[in-house]
């Protein structure tokens, strides 16, 4: 089975995303990092669905679908907010990092 491989990948992705969220202060990068984290969780859920003894389990798959919808809408909203923030303040990095 390749389940463990996907699980480890999910773990790595999650760690990378978490690192980005904690380290990056630039708004868009931080948002992307959060999306990486979310993707890691989705991947893990797919592994869970596949690993069930009697065939793929539909429940985690439904969860991933719903989760993607939510992630997309949150990302869209966040991007809109970032644009607005830039328009008002002319900045894209409220904490004054230097990676923009």
């Amino acid at each position: 089975m390749t389940g463990w491989l996907f699980s480890v990948t999910a773990g790595l992705l999650f760690a990378i995303g978490l690192y980005g969220v904690l380290i990056r202060t630039e708004l868009v990068r931080r948002l992307l990092a959060a999306n990486v984290m979310a993707t890691a969780v989705f991947l893990f859920l797919i592994v869970v669905a596949a690993e069930t003894p009697d065939g793929p389990d539909p429940v985690p798959q439904a969860m991933v679908l719903t989760g993607i919808v939510i992630a997309v809408s949150l990302t869209a909203f966040a991007l809109a907010l970032i644009r607005h923030f830039r328009a008002v303040t002319g900045e894209s990095d409220p904490e004054g990092g230097d990676d923009d």
């Binding site: 893990f44 859920l45 989760g67």
Partner: peptide, 12 residues
């Protein structure tokens, strides 16, 4: 955002 991802991880 991060809070909800952590929550979802927990659920998974």
């Amino acid at each position: 955002l991060v809070g909800s991802i952590l929550f979802l991880l927990g659920v998974a």
